[in-house]
Amino acid sequence: MMDSPELLFAVEVAVGGLLSGVMYALVAIGFVLIYKTSGVLNFAQGAMVLFAALTFVSLVERQVPFWAAIAVTLVIMAGLGFAIERTVLRPLSNRSPMTLFMATLGLSYVIEGAAQLIWGTQVHRLDLGVSNAPFEVGGIFISTFDLVAAAIAAAMVSVLTLFFRYTRTGLSFRAVADDTFAAIAVGLRLGRIQGTVWTAAGVVALVAGLLWGARLGVQFSLSLVVLKALPVLVLGGFDSIVGAIVAGLVIGATEKLAEVYLGPFVGGGIESWFAYAVALVVLLVRPSGLFGKKLVERY
């Protein structure tokens, strides 16, 4: 049974899908971080991915060493995070979540435009030194790059989980997420915490930007990965890192399988909307996603 080539092919497609699902989850985690602590669906996450990758690759092209470029980009992302907190979030505190969402929509236009004004619009090649050569495991071909990406994602999730669970800052993040007013009342500095969260989201954006950029080239379309991450978010629940990972895997695998087995019947190219359809179907049964906090009140 295991030897039948059709089944082997299906498994290969599914594994490829799972691995690309990890890439989706990578972007989605950036959203989750910000949503958990400030209740904002940050549409600008995709723009931040573009900005981080573009900054990094432009520095490398100007002969800045790899790790120095990473460090500089991190500092810039931190600056961006705190600037956003100061200029956008603070004036809008206590406004409805939808207002904040629309503000991040505007923010994504600003960051996308500014990134390309600063670094130019040409496509940059990004080589991380990871080979894309497939290797064989039990008759299935797996891309090395995908595996490395999955490992990096796994490492990042572990670090984030440990950070949230065991550090003081992580604890204050959770306090703010739980009850903002109580957090302020016990003396937590909301501005600093939110600035830090946006910085963390910037770090995640850099990691996502490097991996996606290595695959697609660093260019404007990188910011469109946000559209791949949104159904993952909806499916996993906006406030769950675990949800983002599981949903990323589910969507990655079903999307690839559907493209191979369903696509030919409808003319192909269904990956632009299929993930949304999967997410919607699941949502009709579980309106807060697979792992999302159940909400009783409405926005």
Binding site: L280, L283, L284
Partner: peptide
Amino acid sequence: LRLRGFYLAVSTLAAQFFVQW
């Protein structure tokens, strides 16, 4: 009828991509 807030906003993207496709 089932979804609220952001979940609904994202689901309207389905219309955008499906129709264009």
